[in-house]
Amino acid sequence: MSASRRLLTPGPGVPGGADRLLPGLATAAVAMACAFLIHWLVPVLPAMTLAVVLGVLAANLPATGVWTAGRARPGLDFAGKHLMRGGIVLLGLKVSVMDVLGLGWLALLLIAAVVAAGFGGTYLISRLFRLPPVTSLLVATGFSICGASAIGAMAAVRRIRHVDTVLPVALVTLCGTLAIGVMPLLVHPLQLSAPVFGAWIGASVHDVGQVVATAQTAGTAALGIAVVVKLTRVLLLAPVVAIAGAHQRLTAKPGPGVDGKAKLPPVVPLFVLGFVAMVGLRSTGWLPAGWLGAGAALQDILLGAALFGLGSAVRIRVLLHTGGRALLAALMSWLLIALLGLAAALLIAA
């Protein structure tokens, strides 16, 4: 019996096998509470980054490693896959088309060019370091668009195994965390104004939380433009995933459907359509601030639990043996996107 079918097999006394999921989901909930507490105490540390770090620690400490690899594993895998998709849907509530259009057409073209060049360049670098095509695709998606959320979306549309997303998520989290410490140190040597620095961060840093943590070091002027530029990159998630889905549909062999007929993969998964719908809803301006705040909080909880689930699958010993080339490729890709983002920022904020 496959892992997915075992996951859905009803357990004793609990419909739908929820007894198999509850230990892992409860573990993720406790971890998220710890991540939010640490973020509250040390605001410069994004809660999403902390979720991945706590997951990695839980997987590699002797006291918790057996638990995350054993009884908690089904629920953690469920979080890493399905809660991630729910978080991506709610991510759309942060993106307003009006805010994006307010940047102007030149800025939009520059941001799209950074995403396209970053995607292609990162994929090429990954392949030059002999990373598998699947890993290269996920790394390129995460680095160029919006971190782990983009990796989850691409993995779904390309039908990539959950286990194959673990290394790309670890790499994008590592480099995003590196940006928080390194990029603010470059403001004075590069003589960057606050708007230019903010645009650079928005065009270069991977996760939304990491963008906020990095840009706020230069004040509100930097933070404001950083968030808008970053959310413009997030908006590009939908067309990129749609293109990947169309390619998958053209090249994939049809699989058997429920009725025995051939079934092709969808061009765009339902959760990506949900993301687009949330962008449209946010752009109408109908939702009050309270609803938007609640949506943002729920999105953080879902994505945080998903990232903890993914982090809990990372084994440091295996990563050290197999991830050396991947780490070098990620660092070179991070440098490439930082240079592309800086060039675009100088033009956007000129």
Score class of each variant (00 low, 15 high):
Leu302Gly: 01
Leu57Ser: 10
Ala28Met: 06
Ala349Lys: 02
Ala150Gly: 14
Ser204Phe: 00
Ile225His: 00
Leu347Asp: 08
His247Cys: 14
Gly152Arg: 04
Ala313Glu: 07
Pro254Gln: 05
Ala153Glu: 07
Asp19Lys: 07
Leu93Trp: 09
Thr322Lys: 11
Gly102Ala: 09
Leu50Gly: 14
Thr49Ser: 15
Leu54His: 07
Leu186Arg: 07
Gly309Phe: 03
Pro12Asp: 13
Arg73Val: 08
Leu106Ala: 08
Arg161Pro: 00
Gly323His: 01
Val52Trp: 13
Gly285Asp: 02
Ser312Trp: 06
Thr220Met: 11
Pro195Trp: 01
Arg159Thr: 09
Ser4Ile: 13
Lys230His: 12
Met32Leu: 15
Ser193Gln: 04
Trp291Tyr: 07
Leu91Lys: 00
Ser333His: 11
Ser96Val: 03
Ala294Trp: 04
Val30Gln: 07
Arg73Phe: 02
Tyr123Phe: 15
Val134Asn: 01
Gly120Ile: 08
Pro254His: 09
Ala107Val: 09
Gly118Cys: 06
Ala58Lys: 06
Gly118Ser: 11
Leu124Pro: 11
Leu21Gln: 04
Arg73Tyr: 03
His247Arg: 13
Ala3Leu: 10
Leu340Trp: 09
Leu340Met: 08
Ser136Asp: 13
Ala330Asp: 08
Gly295Gln: 00
Leu292Lys: 01
Lys230Pro: 12
Leu137Phe: 06
Arg161Leu: 12
Ser312Asp: 01
Lys94Tyr: 12
His188Pro: 04
Arg20Asn: 05
Arg282Gln: 13
Val42Gly: 05
Gly176Arg: 10
Trp105Val: 14
Thr322Gln: 15
Ala222Tyr: 01
Gly290Leu: 00
Thr284Lys: 05
Pro133Ser: 12
Val187Ala: 12
Arg6Ser: 12
Leu190Glu: 06
Leu273Ile: 11
Val44Arg: 15
Val212Asn: 00
Leu331Gly: 05
Leu346Arg: 15
Ala69His: 14
Gly147Val: 09
Met154Gln: 02
Val172Ala: 03
Lys253Pro: 08
Gly104Gln: 02
His247Gly: 13
Leu303Pro: 13
Asp259Ser: 10
Ala305Ser: 14
Thr322Met: 05
Val134Asp: 13
Leu171Gly: 06
Ala140Trp: 03
Leu57Asn: 02
Ala150Asp: 03
Gly147Tyr: 10
Ala297Ile: 01
Tyr123Met: 15
Thr232Asp: 06
Met98Ala: 15
Leu22His: 02
Met183Lys: 09
Ala26Pro: 03
Ala289Ile: 05
Ser283Met: 08
Gln216Asp: 07
Pro133Asn: 14
Val97Ala: 14
Thr27Ser: 12
Thr122Ala: 04
Pro12Met: 04
Met98Gly: 14
Gly13Cys: 05
Ser149Asn: 10
Arg249Leu: 08
Pro10Val: 07
Ser193Pro: 13
Leu167Tyr: 04
Ser126Lys: 06
Asp164Ile: 05
Ala35Glu: 00
Ala242Trp: 01
Leu307Asp: 07
Leu128Ile: 09
Ala72Met: 10
Pro254Glu: 03
Met278Trp: 04
Ile201Gln: 02
Leu106Gln: 09
Ile301Gln: 11
Arg130Tyr: 14
Gly92Ser: 04
Trp105Arg: 04
Val97Phe: 12
Ala215Glu: 09
Asp300Val: 09
Gly311Arg: 11
Val53Gly: 05
Ser2Phe: 09
Gly224Leu: 06
Ile180Tyr: 12
Leu45Gly: 11
Ser144Pro: 02
Ala3Trp: 10
Leu235Lys: 13
Leu342Ile: 03
Gly260Arg: 01
Leu270Trp: 10
Ala113Gly: 08
Ile151Asn: 10
